[in-house]
Amino acid sequence: MSVRVQTQDFDLSAELATMRAGRSDIGALVTFTGLVRDMAKSGPVTEMELEHYPGMTERALEQIVSEAHERWPLQDALIIHRHGPLAPGDQIVLVATASPHRHAAFEAAEFLMDYLKSRAPFWKKEHGATGAQWVDARESDEQALSRWTKS
């Protein structure tokens, strides 16, 4: 299973061991882990709440993974994204890509992250001393996405 949306935490080394199990053809394994930061524009963050659209989230992530497989010679790709209440320092998202060579693995991991940031139906709400605020989408995230559509 290449896409998982869950409330529970994940274990990076266990996931990598699963990807590597029983094969020796992988030359490069790139991983990205996103964490909850303790500071927002509005001040210190005490809790991060992640809402998502059950059903559409899995579909959107699966589409993104299939597109990555079409673009790069990947042997495997994995996305784990958590939802629900999270605390500063918690893991939010894991992206892992496996390929015979590093360039494809690096690029595909960036592509997956850039796409899921603004195309997978998740919404973050930060709780702090002054109350709770929905996180605004960033223009820089849209720009990050646009570089993959230029041919």
Binding site: H52, Y53, I92, L116, K117, S118, A120, F122, W123, A137
Partner: peptide
């Protein structure tokens, strides 16, 4: 039909 703000995953 679903309505929502711009997405902020990752």
């Amino acid at each position: 039909v679903a309505f929502f703000p711009p997405m902020t995953g990752g």
